[in-house]
Amino acid sequence: MAVEKGIGFIGGGQMAEALIKGLISAGFVSKEKVIASDPAVGRRDHLAKTYGVRATDSNKEVVSSSDIIVLAVKPQVISRVLEEINEYVTMDHLVLSIAAGIPLRLLQDGLPRDTRVVRVMPNTPALVGYGSAALSPGSFAREEDIMLARDIMGAVGIVVVLPEHLMDAVTGLSGSGPAYVFAFIEGLIDAGVREGLSRPVAAELVLQTVIGSAVMCKETGRHPSELASMVTSPGGTTIDGLYMLEKGAFKGLLMDAVRAAVRRSMELGGHT
Rank of each mutant, 00 (worst) to 15 (best):
D190M: 10
A191G: 12
A191F: 06
A191L: 10
A191N: 09
G192S: 14
V193M: 06
V193R: 03
V193N: 01
V193A: 01
V193Y: 02
R194C: 00
E195L: 12
E195N: 07
E195I: 03
G196I: 09
G196A: 10
G196Q: 12
L197T: 05
L197H: 07
S198G: 11
S198M: 03
S198H: 03
R199A: 01
R199F: 02
R199T: 02
R199W: 02
R199N: 03
R199H: 03
R199S: 03
P200C: 08
P200H: 07
V201K: 13
V201Y: 09
V201W: 04
A202L: 08
A202Y: 06
A202S: 13
A202V: 06
A203K: 15
A203L: 10
E204F: 08
E204C: 06
L205T: 07
L205K: 14
V206Q: 12
V206I: 11
L207P: 06
L207W: 10
L207A: 12
Q208H: 13
T209G: 13
T209Q: 10
V210W: 12
V210Y: 12
I211D: 12
G212L: 09
G212N: 10
S213D: 10
S213K: 08
S213W: 05
S213P: 11
S213R: 07
A214M: 11
A214F: 05
A214T: 04
A214I: 05
A214W: 03
V215T: 09
V215G: 00
M216N: 08
M216Y: 04
C217R: 01
C217N: 05
C217W: 00
K218I: 04
K218D: 00
E219P: 00
T220M: 00
T220A: 00
G221Q: 10
G221F: 09
R222G: 00
R222T: 02
R222Y: 01
H223K: 02
P224G: 00
S225H: 07
S225A: 15
E226M: 04
E226A: 08
E226P: 02
E226N: 02
L227Q: 03
L227P: 05
A228G: 06
A228P: 03
S229T: 09
M230T: 08
T232D: 01
S233Y: 06
S233T: 13
S233A: 13
S233I: 03
S233F: 04
P234N: 04
G235L: 14
G236D: 12
G236R: 05
T237S: 15
T237M: 13
T238Q: 11
I239R: 09
I239M: 09
D240G: 11
D240N: 13
D240L: 14
G241H: 14
G241K: 15
G241N: 14
G241M: 13
L242Q: 05
L242V: 11
L242H: 04
Y243I: 10
Y243G: 11
Y243F: 14
M244P: 01
L245I: 01
L245E: 01
E246S: 04
E246Q: 07
K247P: 08
K247V: 10
K247L: 14
K247T: 11
G248K: 12
G248H: 11
A249G: 10
A249P: 01
A249T: 06
F250T: 01
K251E: 03
K251F: 07
K251R: 15
G252R: 10
G252D: 08
G252Q: 06
G252Y: 05
L253W: 07
L253D: 08
L253A: 13
L254E: 03
L254Q: 04
M255S: 09
D256H: 06
D256Q: 13
